[in-house]
Computed example of a mutant assay.
Amino acid sequence: MTAVEQTKVPTSHRFLDEAGDPTFFKKGRILAVGEPGVSLAFSLGMVKFNGDLQPIRAGIRRLQDEIAEDDYLNTIASVAKRVSGGGFYFHATDDSPEVRERMFRFIQSLDCSLEMVVARKIPALFAKKHHHKDSEFYADLLSHLIKNKLKLGQRLVLNIAARGVSTRNMNLELALSKAHERFRKKWSAGEIQSSVVFNVQTPRTEPLLCVADYLCWSVQRVFERGEMRHYEFIREKVSLAVDLYDTAKYEGSGNYYTRERPLTAQNKLSPLLP
């Protein structure tokens, strides 16, 4: 490809965040999945915005400033802590119901979509497939989100919420390598038309990550608690949710959920058997 041709390749941005946690064990190698503070699944989601990103960023920043300056909301401990720590930003897990409502209504107005991979925590699979490493678990999920984007013919910029070792360059490159492997199982290597660039950020530096955080949180609550309220409010934004290890529904892609086939309270995961 010549330099002139390269300049014609369109750039497309995606925004990624996780939900849940990758913890399997507590001290003494005792299984902790499903205990208070330890999720039943670990998930990774990717958001695409249609249209100019700058007005959306500006809108989120305005909303954050409003909350930081609101004398009813800025005394809430979670708000005050972030304000004093460098500036308020949205974080669904810690935000109060009043704060969440403002962000959810803003998200409802956006033209955006979420693709999410939900991985049930299966200890034997974590050992065999991910070698008991959180970073490999993360890389594997990320590869599933990347693989189908390699045919788009774009320079794909993945803006990823920082997560320690998991989002270090070496591990992100591992995810890309896994994505290429998965791609070649379905298509030929010559059909790979996209390049992928990783851009690790925080919600303070990239407000659009807050949208990914909220959407992922809403889907995760369905799987963890069977809670439908927030998911139903933003359901049209969830273009795809994959229950990656629901082997009982693999036939006919029954583990894939779309706008036409949405999640229900029956998608709530059961605790692991002892």
Rank of each mutant, 00 (worst) to 15 (best):
V238F: 13
R100V: 03
L145C: 02
R168P: 08
D243H: 15
R182G: 09
I30N: 11
R259K: 11
A241Q: 00
S12R: 15
E115R: 14
L114A: 04
E236K: 05
L40F: 15
K186C: 10
D134G: 13
I56V: 11
R105A: 07
Q201C: 07
N159I: 07
S135M: 03
G254K: 11
K26L: 13
P55S: 10
C216T: 13
M170P: 00
T247R: 12
D243P: 08
R235V: 00
K151S: 15
T247S: 13
N267C: 04
E173K: 08
G28S: 01
Q201K: 15
P274K: 12
M228Q: 07
V47P: 00
F183G: 05
H13M: 12
E227K: 02
M103C: 01
Y72R: 15
K249V: 00
I234H: 10
T205H: 05
H144T: 15
V165T: 05
F233S: 04
L240S: 09
V38S: 06
K249C: 00
T202F: 08
K26H: 14
F137D: 03
V38D: 03
S96H: 02
L31W: 06
G252N: 04
E232H: 06
L215C: 07
E224L: 04
T205S: 14
A80N: 03
H132V: 08
L240F: 03
Q108W: 02
G37Q: 06
D94N: 10
E227A: 14
A3K: 13
V38Q: 05
L150F: 14
G86Y: 12
I56N: 02
R102S: 01
R221T: 11
S166I: 08
A77Q: 14
M103S: 00
H91Y: 03
F49L: 03
E206D: 12
P274L: 11
E136C: 10
G164S: 14
D140T: 01
S270R: 04
F198P: 07
E136G: 10
S218F: 05
E227Q: 15
V118N: 10
V165Y: 12
G45K: 08
R62D: 14
V99Y: 00
L44F: 13
S113D: 08
A162E: 13
S43A: 15
Q193C: 08
A41W: 00
R261V: 01
L145N: 02
K268M: 01
Y231A: 06
I76C: 07
M46Q: 13
L244H: 12
T2Y: 02
L174G: 01
D21L: 04
L176W: 02
E35H: 06
L110N: 00
P207M: 06
F233M: 12
S188W: 10
F24D: 12
H91S: 11
R229C: 01
L176H: 10
P274N: 08
K149E: 13
A77S: 14
E224K: 11
V4E: 11
Y231R: 09
